[in-house]
């Protein structure tokens, strides 16, 4: 397993473009901290975002994982091209001839995806923890450690999304087309929703949408902004801030895990069936 990761690391780290994008991605993850610097000071209106409670534990886990997930597109480029370039350089052929099995080839890519997701999760954990410790109004250990399922959901979300990228790279063989297809797929999911809502009813349409890959991934971490308002008002009234609807549901995790397994298996199947 370590050998496969090492092989992928050599391939990625020696490519200047991949290296740049990877560094840029982690730099952007850190830049979440810059939100703290948003300050308005216009005459009588004084507004400092960091003081408005967005960095309060445990809300910060939800907020930061949600925002950080947008940056995954950067890494998506790296992952799609690390698969597609093996085709355009024909190195996939040479790798197999040199004695890498098809299973190992797909596994090495998947392990890299898991590695990227794990490092991202640890990264966002550390950045959020530091921001929280500086700005949060609550610093009790029990509060800090609550709602950590958002980090787990973030991890699963990244694995799912990157596996989708791997699969597209394998299927389409060209980075640009694969990325185009990724965007197209987002529209296709929207179209499916609209058609179903038109043919049947809204309830059925949104139920189906829950199972489509990209939507399932974005469902994992729901938007945190309305919760911020809710937290305020609820907290004011009864001092409670847990609103279950915003949480991560187990079946949503399961749906994404099933898609991940399918994407990896399909990638393997394509490689197995294809004459190179």
């Amino acid at each position: 397993m370590l050998r496969l990761l090492e092989i992928e690391f050599i391939k990625l780290w020696n490519s200047r473009v991949s290296k740049f994008l990877i560094i840029a991605y982690f730099f952007l993850l850190t830049s979440i901290a810059l939100i703290a610097a948003i300050k308005f000071d216009i005459g009588p209106i004084k507004f400092h975002l960091a003081k408005e409670g967005i960095f309060n534990f445990p809300y910060i886990w939800h907020f930061n994982t949600f925002v950080a997930a947008f940056f995954k597109l950067f890494l998506a480029i790296v992952i799609v091209s690390m698969m597609a370039n093996e085709y355009s350089n024909k190195t996939i052929k040479q790798n197999l001839i040199d004695g890498l099995s098809k299973r190992e080839f797909v596994l090495s890519k998947f392990l890299t995806v898991v590695g990227f997701s794990a490092i991202s999760t640890v990264f966002i954990f550390v950045v959020s923890l530091i921001l929280g410790l500086i700005y949060s109004d609550f610093n009790e250990i029990s509060i800090i450690l609550s709602d950590l399922e958002f980090l787990f959901a973030f991890f699963i979300k990244l694995i799912g999304f990157f596996s989708f990228c791997l699969f597209l790279g394998m299927l389409v063989k060209r980075s640009a087309f694969a990325l185009g297809f990724l965007i197209l797929w987002q529209f296709i999911e929207g179209m499916i929703y609209l058609v179903l809502r038109w043919k049947f009813d809204e309830n059925f349409a949104s139920n189906v949408l829950t199972f489509l890959p990209l939507n399932a991934m974005s469902n994992l971490i729901k938007e945190p902004f309305t919760r911020l308002g809710a937290v305020k008002s609820v907290a004011q009234q009864i001092g409670e801030d847990i609103s279950y609807d915003f949480g991560v549901q187990w079946y949503e995790i399961l749906i994404v895990l099933v898609w991940t397994a399918l994407f990896v298996y399909w990638s393997y199947l394509i490689l197995k069936k294809r004459d190179l």
Binding site: R16, K90, I97
Partner: peptide, 28 residues
């Protein structure tokens, strides 16, 4: 694939990672 580790083969054009040096390609 285990057997291929004891085989040396070149088919058609030489395929290596263009952005890597000869030595790094061989290390891979």
């Amino acid at each position: 694939h285990e057997a291929l580790k004891k085989v040396g083969a070149i088919i058609e054009r030489p395929n290596f990672y263009p952005y890597m040096s000869a030595e790094k390609n061989l290390k891979l």
